[in-house]
Simulated assay, not measured.
Amino acid sequence: MTGEPMNLNGKTAVIYGGAGSVGGAIAAAFTEAGASVHLAGRTEATLKARAAELGAEYAVVDALDEQAVDRHAAAFERIDISVNVTTDNDVQGTPMVEMSVEDYLSPVVSAVRSKFLTARAAARHMIRQRSGVILFFGGTGEPSAHRKWQLGGLLAAFDAVESMRRQLAAELGPHGVRVVTLQTGGIPESVPPEHRGPIEEDIVGDTLLGRAATLGDVGRTAVFAASDWGRTITGAQVNITCGSVFG
């Protein structure tokens, strides 16, 4: 095999929500691949602990705060990779017909706002650099009729972010910037243990492979998507659903 190895040596990566399970997995994989990793989030205690584990930097940043996001990004000389895996203020466990409009719209508003702000801040660096990768996590696809989860507005939020991803990819592509979503069918390890059992059964039961993606799978796929090995991928979802979404 010829070409550059799949690594992130010399790359600066900012991960919003980096102290969470998915963000932490991506941060660990990026660190192992040689990137300079910077975690951002709202809770200093968890950020500090995860940063210490990885030898990463961290900053307390509310991804919904426009001034905070812009101020944090402006402190970097360059940003090569931006990942936003912040939670989206979703209200789950209530049938849609019993939800308030505020609860249904909450994840849509927070997802669109936070992803827009962090992507915009990174893109301003990346346009000047003529390179960069913006990663989202979630994606869309035809929902399974077998899933009985009451997810509220979460899927609508994913759809809205995917629309943003397509538009960003079109606008930023001429500047050498890629925009990619890691498309998930659910990561059981990211679910609190007390709720994991039935949810994991549903996730695995919908797959073609009879297993779900792990946090390690998420991290390794993120490295691929952000590295030069993934340089032909933009405006697209990288499917890590184990076949729960296909076609």
Rank of each mutant, 00 (worst) to 15 (best):
M1I: 07
T2M: 11
T2S: 08
T2C: 08
E4G: 02
M6T: 07
N9S: 15
N9V: 13
T12A: 10
A13I: 12
Y16E: 01
A19W: 02
A19F: 04
G23K: 12
G23M: 04
A33C: 11
S36H: 12
E44F: 08
T46S: 13
T46E: 11
K48I: 05
A51C: 11
A52F: 08
E53L: 06
E53R: 12
E53M: 05
E53F: 00
A56W: 10
E57I: 05
Y58C: 01
L64C: 03
D65L: 00
E66P: 00
D70S: 09
R71Y: 02
R71I: 02
A73W: 14
A75P: 04
F76M: 12
E77L: 12
R78G: 13
I79C: 04
I79K: 03
S82N: 06
T86Q: 06
V91E: 09
Q92E: 09
Q92K: 07
G93Y: 05
M99Q: 12
V101Y: 04
Y104Q: 03
V109H: 09
L117M: 05
L117F: 12
A122K: 03
A123S: 08
H125Y: 10
M126D: 03
I127Y: 06
I127G: 00
R128M: 07
Q129L: 13
Q129T: 04
S131W: 02
S131G: 13
G132L: 01
F137G: 03
T140V: 15
T140E: 11
E142I: 05
P143W: 04
P143D: 05
P143V: 04
S144G: 15
H146V: 07
H146L: 11
K148T: 15
K148D: 13
Q150K: 14
L154E: 00
L154N: 03
A156W: 07
A157M: 02
E162Q: 14
S163K: 09
S163G: 15
R165V: 10
E171Q: 13
G173W: 10
V177L: 06
V179G: 00
E189Q: 15
S190K: 06
V191I: 15
P192E: 02
E194I: 06
E194C: 01
P198R: 02
E200I: 09
I203D: 10
I203Y: 01
G205V: 08
D206W: 04
L208E: 01
G210A: 10
G210R: 06
A212F: 14
A213S: 12
G216K: 11
V218H: 02
R220C: 07
R220T: 13
F224W: 05
A226G: 07
S227N: 07
D228T: 06
D228V: 03
I233E: 05
I233M: 11
T234L: 00
G235F: 07
Q237N: 12
V238A: 09
V238C: 04
G243M: 07
S244M: 03
G247P: 00
